[in-house]
Each structure stands twice: as structure tokens, then as C-alpha cells.
């Protein structure tokens, strides 16, 4: 199943939007943080995990999803949030800690919740697995349409909770897909240092479900594999496990010196940057004209600019609002 022309344009648009968004955040993040780097300073305080390079996984999977489908994401959630259709203005405002943010500043960039499109993320490794499995259970019990996708990193498969949730999804035959984004690094620990097998897709055998590894950070190949897994889940045939090779072009967090990376690795990854690659492919395939792609890029940049402007101009969160919304209204 190859993406249609329209789907290819959607994928490219969301990849570019995500990249422009991360670039904007990266620039603003350092405001107020130099010459001395202090994480607490500037308009965007706190940790920041950017998703540059990992866009193909988000768009290849989310191209098959509708707002009613459920996604749980990780501490590195922006590309997935954008591909899932999270309100970009409110998301930017949340990252700035503004009153107009998704949660009014209570969550921050690792805790983005958009109920309108069933998106949530979390700062604890593999923690999204249980809730996604539970949402899948909810749909099955209610006889309602929709699948649940948990995005996790390749380091997450070594969490006990990951195994528990995979087994639960399989033993209850739920409409659930686990998508492992394999960027090769758990902060500074290389995949081969942490895992005894090269492909986490092999772990699917432990649950009696299909597993597939997709090499090359290729949005088309990810689209195809995700399409099969999601169609299978929609048909009531149960969960799947996908592992997608991807590239972390950013550090683990903003400010990460990345001294642990082998010399030259980063340069090689930038040469394989999936965004220019997709642009070339769209043109080579005749799937888009230069003018069309230019328009997509301009519109994406404008969309990001508008979201950043909205965030910057919004009111700060009111300090005393910290004491509200602990419980449901």
C-alpha cells in the first residue's frame, strides 16, 4: 500500500511543519540561556527534547489515523503531536507555559494532552503503553471504532511495563499498535549496549503477534508497514509491533554535548536528513512540482510562525492557577 499523491503531500507538509517548529523552539530556547546555560531561564524553561530527523515515523503512522484514534507519545513528542493534529497554537503556548496552553501551563512539553484528537504523552519511558492498551480495550468493549498507537523509543522495550502491556494487548487481542522509534540512542547509551537483539520486531514472537522492522527512516516504507498493522487492528485481528529505524538529529535534550556519539556519526545522519530526501523523491516521482513543494514549505513556516506568535503574545499562566484542576470539575 503506497501513499497517494495527497497522502504524500500531507506527509511532507507535516514533516516540514514539525521541523520548522523544532527549529523555532530551538532558537527561542536559548534566549536568556547564554552566556551561562541555565535551564530555568528564558521564555522556554526546563528540559527540551527535539524530534528533528524522526519525522518519518510520525507521519508514516499518523497518515492512517483519524482524530478518534488514540496516540500516546513520549518525552520527545512534538512530531507525533503535529502529525496527530494537536492544536499547534495551544501546543506552542503550553511549551511556553502560557495560560492559553493545552493545560494552561500545568503540563509542559513532556505532558501534552489534546482530548479533541485523543493525544497524550508522558515523560516516563514506556509509560504510554498501558493507557494506549486501555484505550484499545475501551474501544473493543464499547464496540466503538478506533485503534490505539503507543509510540516508544527503542530504549523503552527494556522496561518491564512494556512487556506487560504487549502481553495484555495480545492476550486480549486489542486494536493496538506499538511503534518503536529506534534512533539508536537511549540518551547516551547505544542500542547495542542496552539490548541483546538487533531488531526489537523479533520480540513480537514472544506475544504471538506480527512484528516488522523498517530500515532507512523511510516515510514511504513506514507508511506501508503502519498501514498494514493499523488495518489489521481495525479489522479486529489484534495488535502489531513495528520498529522503525530513525535518526536523532538533535541531542537527547537541548544542551546535550553528545560527546558519546562516534566521530562523524552526526554528519552522516545529516546527509540522510529525511526532509530533503523526501523532497527529492517527490520531485523524481513526479508526485509534486517545485512550486507545490515551495508552497507547502511556505505554508508550514507561516503556520509555525503564527503558533509561536500566539504563544509569545499569550498571557503567562496565573501562579495561583497552579492550585486548581487537581481533580475533575
Amino acid at each position: 500500500m503506497s501513499p497517494t499523491r495527497e497522502e504524500q503531500h500531507w506527509m511532507y507538509r507535516n514533516m516540514v511543519t514539525s521541523r520548522r517548529f523544532e527549529e523555532a523552539i530551538a532558537k527561542i530556547y536559548f534566549e536568556g540561556k547564554s552566556p551561562a546555560f541555565n535551564m530555568a531561564n528564558g521564555p522556554i524553561p526546563g528540559e527540551m527534547h527535539l524530534s528533528d530527523g524522526q519525522e518519518p515515523v510520525a507521519v508514516g503512522v499518523c497518515a492512517h489515523l483519524t482524530p478518534e484514534d488514540v496516540v500516546t507519545a513520549t518525552h520527545r513528542p512534538h512530531h507525533q503531536a503535529i502529525a496527530k493534529g494537536v492544536d499547534l497554537d495551544k501546543m506552542a503556548a503550553e511549551i511556553f507555559g502560557k495560560k492559553t496552553g493545552l493545560s494552561g501551563g500545568r503540563g509542559g512539553h513532556m505532558h501534552l494532552f489534546d482530548d479533541d484528537v485523543n493525544f497524550a504523552c508522558s515523560g516516563i519511558i514506556a509509560q504510554g503503553m498501558g493507557p494506549a492498551v486501555g484505550a484499545a480495550l475501551s474501544r473493543k468493549m464499547q464496540g466503538k471504532p478506533g485503534v490505539a498507537v503507543a509510540f516508544v523509543g527503542e530504549g523503552a522495550v527494556n522496561q518491564g511495563g512494556w512487556h506487560e502491556a504487549m502481553n495484555l494487548a495480545a492476550v486480549w487481542n486489542l486494536p493496538f499498535i506499538c511503534v518503536v522509534e529506534d534512533n539508536g540512542w537511549g540518551i547516551s547509551v547505544a542500542k547495542k549496549t542496552a539490548s541483546s537483539i538487533a531488531s526489537h520486531a523479533d520480540r513480537a514472537a514472544a506475544y504471538g503477534i506480527p512484528g516488522k522492522r523498517i530500515e532507512g527512516n523511510d516515510p514511504y516504507a513506514i507508511f506501508e508497514a503502519a498501514g498494514e498493522a493499523i488495518a489489521r487492528a481495525r479489522a479486529g485481528e489484534g495488535p502489531s509491533l513495528l520498529e522503525c529505524e530513525t535518526y536523532r538529529l538533535a541531542g537527547h535534550f537541548m544542551g546535550d554535548a553528545e560527546a558519546y556519539r562516534p566521530k562523524g556519526e552526526k554528519d552522516a545522519l545529516f546527509e540522510k536528513d529525511p526532509i530533503p530526501k523526501m523532497r527529492e523523491r517527490l520531485l523524481a516521482d513526479g508526485a509534486a512540482s517545485e512550486a507545490e513543494l515551495d508552497t507547502i514549505e511556505e505554508e508550514s513556516a507561516a503556520r509555525v510562525d503564527a503558533a509561536i506568535k500566539f504563544a509569545r503574545e499569550s498571557d503567562d499562566a496565573a501562579p495561583e492557577d497552579a492550585l486548581t484542576r487537581v481533580f475533575a470539575a
Binding site: V70, G130, P131, V133, G134, A135, S138, M141, G161
Partner: peptide, 20 residues
């Protein structure tokens, strides 16, 4: 459930957020 408290309590959270 299986003896998997992390998974089924986490799943309860997901189901609760989804209308159950």
C-alpha cells in the same frame, strides 16, 4: 488479568480517559 499491575492499572487510566 495477567500478573501485570503496571499494564492493567495503566490500561485502566487509558480506558477511563476514553469513556469507561
Amino acid at each position: 488479568t495477567p500478573i501485570s499491575e503496571t499494564a492493567f492499572i495503566g490500561a485502566a487510566v487509558g480506558a477511563a480517559q476514553d469513556g469507561m
